[in-house]
């Protein structure tokens, strides 16, 4: 193949380790976007990622920047100190919905409320993927999980939480957006959102949050194609895409 004919390539910062993600999982796409944006911004040697507990716990195995692996939910607290003590670096967290909106709600809200100059990448697939498909705060009503085998009931389990809407209300956030990566167009939009968020972090504008409404074909027990369709028909109506805040 002639170089001029090449239209796509593995991003330089995405190494060649085989990802452990399931077929159809959104994580791989978002990892690629994060790696691309860091490199395109010239921050390959100036970035500290904070990994969560959840399916993305091994994010540090795939993207070649410095990483700190946080305890469940604590990534925004870890990133707070990391950024304050290393203000010239790009510091971002990469968290799932269980990590961010259940066990780490306090750390997330307070880091955002302080306006820490970090980016929070938030993968919302409505389920605990890594631990085996249990209910998350974001699980939709009626959705079957291993801990809601007959479907989520608000009277028993509360309501699906729109945590990004809460974060958008806080004075400390400068940019809160909800995107997806299920179509080529949505992938492009998500990449632009990540870029904007990282630029905000480097410019010291406050906390940026990029929620990515995602699929979990294993947890949802669907094929990747069916999961994408289910997400469009069920997740996105409840978690509509677009900017919640852009200052």
């Amino acid at each position: 193949m002639k170089p001029e004919n090449q239209v796509a390539a593995r991003p330089r910062l995405l190494n060649e380790r085989n990802m452990h993600y399931c077929p159809g999982c959104s994580h791989g796409v978002v990892h690629r976007l994060v790696a691309e944006v860091i490199d395109e911004m010239g921050l390959a040697d100036d970035t500290i990622g904070v990994a969560p507990v959840g399916c993305a716990v091994f994010a540090y195995n795939y993207i070649d920047v410095d990483w700190i692996e946080a305890a469940p939910g604590r990534a925004p607290a870890v990133a707070t100190a990391t950024k304050r003590l290393n203000p010239s670096r790009l510091v971002f967290t990469y968290q799932g919905d269980g990590d961010l909106s259940a066990i780490g709600t306090a750390e997330t809200i307070h880091a955002a409320n302080r306006g820490e100059n970090i980016t929070i990448i938030f993968i919302n697939n409505g389920i605990y993927g890594m631990t085996g498909g249990q209910m998350a705060p974001t699980t939709l009503e009626g959705m079957k999980t291993s801990t809601t085998p007959y479907g989520r009931r608000p009277d028993l389990n509360g309501f699906p939480m729109k945590i990004s809407n809460i974060l958008a209300m806080l004075e400390g956030t400068c940019y809160v957006t909800r995107q997806a990566v299920h179509t080529p167009a949505s992938v492009r939009k998500t990449k632009a959102a990540i870029r904007k968020a990282f630029e905000n972090s480097m410019a010291g504008k406050g906390t940026s949050v990029v929620e990515v409404v995602s699929t979990c074909s294993s947890g949802w027990k669907m094929t990747p194609v069916a999961a994408n369709k289910w997400m469009e028909e069920n997740m996105i109506p409840y978690y509509p895409l677009g900017d919640l805040k852009n200052e």
Binding site: I68, R74, T80, E107
Partner: peptide, 11 residues
């Protein structure tokens, strides 16, 4: 306290 010690960890 939980956040504080995790900030220590991050630093």
């Amino acid at each position: 306290e939980v956040a504080a010690i995790n900030m220590v960890y991050g630093g």
